[in-house]
Every structure is written in structure tokens, then in C-alpha cells.
């Protein structure tokens, strides 16, 4: 219990750190958010600044911002007139979540299945095929893969729509593009974990006991082999979240990721800050969950302190 409490405190600290960092960075940018546009009369700029509280002392702005964050109020958007960041996030979140969740499911099941198959067929043809696919998945940047899929599968072959959102067939290409890297990583970790576990003494014991091969693999090996995969869950969620930026941008899906990328070129700082903070909060939550799953998988680790791994 104390361990979990400590983890929650440090998670809150991380989120605070991100809030402060984004606040400082956004205010360190030379020129206000509106200075880049066509030259406006000083009175109007003053007016705008007044409206968005940009004339207040920095400390007051910071404290106000923190307070609003505590109530999950990310403030108004600078670009989308009359809309708040919350509106945008609420609108985008279901799409991003659906995309992320589908990619997560595909990555976990596909990755583990591929990894186990490769390990069991070590140095055989199937192993090499999987290693080849895995290497491509790890090496080809998601935006390159997304663009290729969009062009060849979408525009050339017309199998799936290259753009847009709303129907089931719209989600296929983005999910493949988004999950390629995590599928590959999970397959690689599972394969390595499996190969490592298969040389362990307790597997030899299981063989010496005359157990069936399937029993040895499923009961004795798989659970142990998945521990490195669980440690990858943290970076995995991070990848799914950041990977979304570019996937939604390429496939023109109106999710949080696309708002984020467009707000970067629009210099819509509240959206940038809000998205960053939201992602940071989601991430620390996921990491906490991954840690808890880890302890459930391995009875040796108790939630008492920082584990060695």
C-alpha cells in the first residue's frame, strides 16, 4: 500500500513538472502568440492580451494555470474562436482512444503470438520470416509506413479508404501503421524472453518430469517469458500516444493527435499545453498500471519497494 501511495505521489509530481515545464517553455517563446500574424494595431493586441490574461504578472498566470489544471480546465483555444481546449480534447478523445485501443490489442496479441512462434521455430524459415517482419516494423518510421499504406493500399489498390474517419474500414490502415512498431517490439521481446526462459533450469526440470511439450510452453515458459514484455508496456503506451500524432495527421483523423500537430503550426499554445499535460497524466497512470500487472505476473515481486528490474 505504501508503495502504491508513493508511486501516486511521484506520478502527481511528474504531472506537475510537465505542467510547469510546458508553461515555462510556452512563455519563453519570443513574441506573444498573436505577434506572428498580420500587423495589428497595438490597441487590439493589448485587448487580446487582456482577454487571455497575458498582461498579468507571470507568477499569477502560472498559479492561475495550475489552479485551472487541477480542475482539468485547459482554458480557451487561441485559434478556434469561442471554443475551449476541453471542447477540442473531448471531441478528439474518443477517436484517439479507439485508435489507440485497437492498436494496443493488435500489438499485444499479434506481438506475443509472433514472438512465441519465432522462438519455437528458432533458426527455421518461419523464424527468419518473423525476424524480417519485426526488423521492418522496428526500422521503418511510422510516418513512412503510414504514407506508404495510404498510397499503395489506399490510392492505388483501393482496398481501404486512404483518408477520413467514421466507418470501420477507415480504421484499418491507421491501426496497422500505428501498431507496426509495438507489434515488432513485443514480438522481439517475447522471442528473446522465450528463448531465454527455454534455457532455464526449471524448463529442464519440466522436461525431465516428462511433461508434454505444450504444457511446458504454455504453463512453464510463457508466463515467465512475458515479464520483459510487461516492462515494455510503459514505453509502449508512450509510443501509442505520440505515434498517434502523426498517424492522425497523415490519415486526417480529427483526434487529439491531429489537433496537436495543427496547433503546433498554428502556435495555439493552450492546445499544445493541454494535450501535453493530458498525455503526461495518461502516461503516468498507464505506467502505474503496468507496474501493478508486473507484480501480478511474478509472485517474487511484492509491492514493498522499488524492484530491481
Amino acid at each position: 500500500m505504501r508503495y502504491i501511495f508513493g508511486r501516486i505521489v511521484s506520478a502527481i509530481f511528474v504531472v506537475w513538472f510537465v505542467i510547469t515545464l510546458t508553461f515555462m517553455l510556452m512563455h519563453a517563446i519570443p513574441g506573444g502568440p498573436f505577434s506572428s500574424e498580420k500587423v495589428l494595431p497595438p490597441a487590439i493586441i493589448d485587448n487580446i492580451n487582456e482577454r487571455y490574461h497575458l498582461n498579468d504578472p507571470l507568477l499569477k498566470q502560472y498559479l492561475d494555470y495550475l489552479k485551472n489544471m487541477a480542475y482539468f480546465d485547459f482554458g480557451p483555444s487561441y485559434r478556434y474562436q469561442g471554443r475551449t481546449v476541453n471542447d477540442l480534447l473531448q471531441e478528439g478523445f474518443p477517436k484517439t482512444a479507439l485508435l489507440g485501443l485497437s492498436a494496443t490489442i493488435l500489438a499485444l496479441f499479434g506481438g506475443v503470438a509472433m514472438g512465441v512462434t519465432a522462438a519455437l521455430k528458432q533458426n527455421k524459415m518461419l523464424d527468419y520470416v518473423i525476424i524480417f517482419l519485426v526488423t521492418i516494423g522496428i526500422s521503418v518510421p511510422s510516418f513512412v509506413l503510414a504514407t506508404f499504406l495510404q498510397y499503395y493500399i489506399g490510392y492505388e489498390l483501393h482496398w481501404f479508404p486512404p483518408l477520413g474517419w467514421g466507418e470501420v474500414k477507415n480504421i484499418i490502415l491507421p491501426v496497422i501503421a500505428l501498431s507496426a512498431y509495438p507489434v515488432a517490439q513485443i514480438a522481439r521481446l517475447t522471442r528473446a524472453g522465450m528463448l531465454d526462459v527455454l534455457t532455464q533450469d526449471y524448463i529442464r526440470t519440466a522436461k525431465a518430469k516428462g511433461l508434454a511439450k505444450s504444457t511446458i510452453i504454455i504453463r512453464h515458459a510463457l508466463k515467465n517469458a512475458l515479464t520483459p514484455v510487461v516492462t515494455f508496456l510503459g514505453p509502449f503506451f508512450a509510443y501509442i500516444l505520440t505515434g498517434n500524432f502523426v498517424i492522425e495527421y497523415v490519415f486526417n483523423i480529427p483526434g487529439i493527435g491531429q489537433f496537436f500537430v495543427t496547433s503546433i503550426s498554428n502556435r495555439d499554445y493552450p492546445v499544445i499545453m493541454g494535450t501535453t499535460v493530458l498525455f503526461a497524466a495518461l502516461l503516468v497512470t498507464f505506467n502505474l498500471l503496468a507496474d501493478i500487472i508486473y507484480t501480478l505476473l511474478d509472485p517474487r515481486i511484492k509491492l514493498t519497494g522499488r524492484e530491481g528490474a
Binding site: 532455464q200 533450469d201 526449471y202 529442464r204 526440470t205 519440466a206 504453463r219 512453464h220 508466463k223 515467465n224 505476473l297 511474478d298 509472485p299 517474487r300
Partner: peptide, 10 residues
């Protein structure tokens, strides 16, 4: 080595 010959998760 009896320490490693038993499966730790069963």
C-alpha cells in the same frame, strides 16, 4: 541447483 530448478511463478 535447486534454487533455479523450480519454476518461480508456479
Amino acid at each position: 541447483d535447486p534454487m533455479t530448478s523450480l519454476n518461480p511463478v508456479l
